[in-house]
Amino acid sequence: MRWILPLAVIVLLLVYPFVVNSFWLVQIGGRTLGFGTIVLSLVFLTAYTGMLSLAQMTVAGVAGYATAYFTAPTGGVGLLLPWPVALVLALALATLAGLLIGLVAVRTRGIYTLMITLAVAMAFYYLTLQNYDIFNGFTGFNNVEPPVILGLDLGANLPFYYMSVVLAASCYLGVRHVVRTPFGLALQGVRDEPDRLRALGFNVPLLRVLAFGLAGFIAGIGGILNVWLNASISPGSVALNPVIDVLMAGVLGGIGHPAGAYVGAFVFTIVDNFAIDFIARERFNTLIGLVFLAIVLFSPDGLTGLVRRAWTRGTGWARRDRGGAPKTDDIGK
């Protein structure tokens, strides 16, 4: 039974481009994978270290801006580098940004972490808006295209989609792997019993900062995909709305499991794009709000939680012997 779902997902991802039009391929599919990877970085932090961050879009923005700065200089701002160097730099800067935010936030917990990361996010937003030497102000960067490798244009719809699939899948599997390593187990220990971990001789603040760094790296990958999808980046890409969107998609999908990141990103993208079809154009944001409210109200652990509960009920007799589904109650403690 266990391999049915992963196999179905793999087949779906591979077949998807051949049954949908370019809008669903790029704007829904591509966006879900890129944006979902940013959400994944938040879910990783929250599910396995118990820390909620609002600065993941900001970290993604650092990678996006770096990609733009080094591959698409505009109006005298930027420095053209070969794309592999540019991408390595972008990811390094995103990781560094994650580490720095971790350093700032490491001694806080719960709502204070949220506040401090929100402050960082807003500071970065205003910096991009008002700095013209590096970020090019309100206009930001345009024409940020993915590279062409051996004649294969990664910016074309199909290659872009598959590249997104590969990167998103690597991030997802990477997270699933890391949480089983001693480092990942230690992180979960920090989440559940920081005092006991300290007593055992672990350096708790260091573990947390490293978790932020890793989350920064993941968000950086998502940020690069995002900037390629839009072919542009401007302060609007790291403003309050997108910053909150990440949290919203995470909560929607279920912040307790990495798969929730992509489920949440998918549902968020769909609702965001199509709500206007169902209601008067002046009121569509109300509908978006109501849908989110309903999901959070009826399934506090998001859509994956809903599915998991339905699954457990359906196969309850088989599961009961194995101890049931993992609990997600203690997330965000």
């Binding site: 809008f23 704007q27 839009n230 794009n273």
Partner: peptide
């Protein structure tokens, strides 16, 4: 859209491609 070029582009893609 909300005045942000990214959002305008997303909406334009929706209107044209979808």
């Amino acid at each position: 859209s909300d005045g942000n070029p990214d959002v305008a582009l997303e909406s334009a893609r929706r209107l044209v491609e979808q």
